[in-house]
Design a protein around this nucleic acid. Structure first.
Lengths: 257, 257
DNA sequence: CGACCCTTTGAGGGCCGTCAAAGGGGGTGG
DNA sequence: CCACCCCCTTTGACGGCCCTCAAAGGGTCG
């Protein structure tokens, strides 16, 4: 099966003026928000920002003064060692909240870099605590997001600690495909947007670039998946899930801030 | 080295009746709590529980109905794969909060097992949301703890993804020693309580038992550390930190719930 | 056209996993 | 008190997974 001709590379869309017009405020994707919730988020939002692919949004060691929600595009969190080794902690997709840890540390313990051109909603850090005081539902949502992030990290920890190369790659492909597809980043033909280079995959999985390539090619030759034109196609999702020992949990809609 | 707040108990001590008498409510260890904070936590606490070493506090896949704070003893969080491989996600020491993720998932995505005999403060899950509504400081503290946990997981992810066996072991020794020493679990002579078996270390670091042993022995023969009688001694902390590329951050007191 | 990035493949070696077995310590029962 | 067992630790041998080194090819952009 050949991938359909790729549509023109969509440049990321800007967040609308009003949060109620947010493209992600649709049934099923995120938790429903009533008018009051929307007003809260709208008032919290200090503005929007753009960032070019490859630029760093948050630098390691600096104290970030803003909070962000990814509106469009992909990014990733990472940490570096002194000699340059870099570990990608997880990938950030639209709807993901950035910067929580900064609230409770003296400096950013990780960096954030744009994988594609990025559109962001920006929130002033200083408004977080007042909002906690005025809106307990908001506080609850933030905690929810933090707990959810923690679950993702748990998964990644198991992957790095216990899975071999093929299992790691299969896991990453399945998980990212599901996350992207769920957001409607698919093309309707089994392919989803996939802006990672093999170096990103290697850094995320704790593998060398060379071995990452060989493992990807192996799975591809087995007909399990295909990567082409910045898109990922899962040709045999069940087989990939079996290799990765991936257990699909029902995805609960998250709060969107 | 911190002076022990109380003589190191060979058998875990029970939580006192009143939270204000809690052995961990001492300057420097955790964030100070005023009378109102204490009353809040006291009212939240539904009781106490004990658990024998080796028993599971939370089983993977079950929906836990309680929240806990470790009062005395060690525990660990873990996840398993279908074929039995197990990854220890992190270790839990006195003051650590257990069960947040359960609030936002349909089932526990990880298990919790007692490493030593365990003394716990228990909180009913159903009271969490009402507390968020009544006490924004409480909500803020919970979010703080969640963000802090996330930082620990980030560190572990870097360890598993980028560090080799010697670096991993050195990292674990340094980090656990600091956490235990800070709580006053030291003996005043450079040794801290250390209830892990080499199998636990292996499961936490994603190494085989055999290779974990060989790596530990190598560092021990270099005179960097010593493990004896359930105690860990760092003989050359700076050398271990250098091997692990561990950067000491000032430890901020956490909230205690 | 050249520079650069990303992908791909081969060759060789080392880190770490698996298999195997022995030794020590604590607990239990004879 | 000793025998026995079980768990944990320790060490050696061997093999394999994955890393490093090296190099070629394609695509994009200046």
């Amino acid at each position: 099966m050949n991938p359909p001709p790729s549509p023109p590379p969509s440049s990321p869309s800007s967040p609308p003026e009003r949060c109620r017009d947010c493209r992600w405020r649709q049934p099923g994707l995120f938790l429903p928000a009533d008018a009051e919730d929307l007003a809260t988020v709208q008032a919290f939002r200090g503005g929007t920002e753009k960032l070019r692919a490859g630029r760093t949004l948050v630098a390691e060691g600096r104290l970030p003064i803003k909070l962000y929600t990814v509106y469009d595009g992909w990014a990733f969190r990472y940490k570096s060692l002194a000699d340059g080794r870099r570990q990608i902690l997880n990938f950030l997709l639209p709807g993901d909240f950035i910067g929580l840890q900064g609230e409770f540390a003296d400096e950013a313990t990780h960096g954030v870099e744009a994988l594609t051109d990025l559109q962001l909603c920006v929130f002033p850090r200083g408004d977080l605590w007042p909002l906690f005081q005025r809106k307990p539902e908001f506080a609850y949502d933030v905690t929810w997001l933090a707990a959810k992030q923690e679950q993702l990290l748990d998964e990644n920890l198991v992957t790095l600690g216990q899975r071999n190369a093929a299992e790691r790659v299969a896991m990453l492909l399945v998980v990212l495909w599901r996350r992207a597809d769920r957001l409607g980043l698919g093309d309707g033909h089994g392919g989803v947007e996939f802006p990672l280079t093999q170096q990103h995959i290697a850094d995320a999985l704790g593998l060398s670039l060379v071995h990452t390539n060989k493992t990807l090619r192996k799975l591809e030759r087995l007909g399990l998946h295909r990567v082409a034109d910045g898109r990922l196609y899962l040709l045999q999702p069940a087989a990939l899930a079996r290799i990765a020992d991936f257990v699909a949990r029902p995805i609960r809609p998250q709060p969107l801030i």
